[in-house]
Amino acid sequence: MTVTESPAVVHSPGAPPPDGPLCKGRAIVIGASSGIGAALVRRLVADGYRVAALARRGERLAELEQELGEAALTRVHDVTDRQVVPVLFEDLVRGLGGLDLLVYAAGIMPKVGPQEYDTEKDVAILETNLCGMIAWGNEAARLFGSQRRGTICGISSIAGVRGRRGQPVYGTSKAAMDHYLEALRNRLDEYGVHVVTIRPGFVETEMTAGLGLRGAISADQAARGIQRAIERHATVRYLPRRWWLVAQIVRSIPSFFFRRMSI
């Protein structure tokens, strides 16, 4: 039987180390064409990671590829196309020569009117923000659990903390994502795998453009915070970190008042 290319050998007898001396790690970033995802890809590459960057919008990815050169591998991928995830994941891990980090940064937040109840639109939010996370998270969980090493990072949101009137399903998707990530963390802890939940507050991205967020940090600042959270094996990290306090306060408001507030 002809044996074709050898997949990423980690430590079979006599095998060389999978990565060169300059590689700090190997990462997949999903949702890399703009905002936090794109900033994070740039940061990781600058820091010595080999990165596979995935996004729906090909032209944005092409720009990123041109900018970053060989250190980043790019693929056009629509996270709602879950069928392709197992094969694509395998392909990327083989291409990177292994995997240490998976970041799920894909997310949408369409405008929702105060009296709008559009099921189709709502399900589309869940498909992108939640189901995509699960599809990729499951693949990574299996791989990281089996190699007893790795970090899964999900970019959630402060919006998942309470069910606010403005974005019922966006908030739901993030709350569910938090729940999923926490469960993964509890499952995988025994196997040395870290799961980091990032809850950004106000970050200037395309998604939040036009919302007039006051005191927002830049996507680059957010990316720096995320990288630090990953390296320190944080569990839940608010960005900027003072949003932790905001979250505690928001969480403690009794429903009786909360339902009368405009936040």
Partner: peptide, 19 residues
């Protein structure tokens, strides 16, 4: 169904990634 994993012997001394 398939997935991509690290596959090793129970004693954990050697293994590799595989579908």
């Amino acid at each position: 169904k398939h997935s991509y994993e690290y596959v090793e012997g129970w004693g954990m001394t050697s293994g590799r990634h595989a579908r």
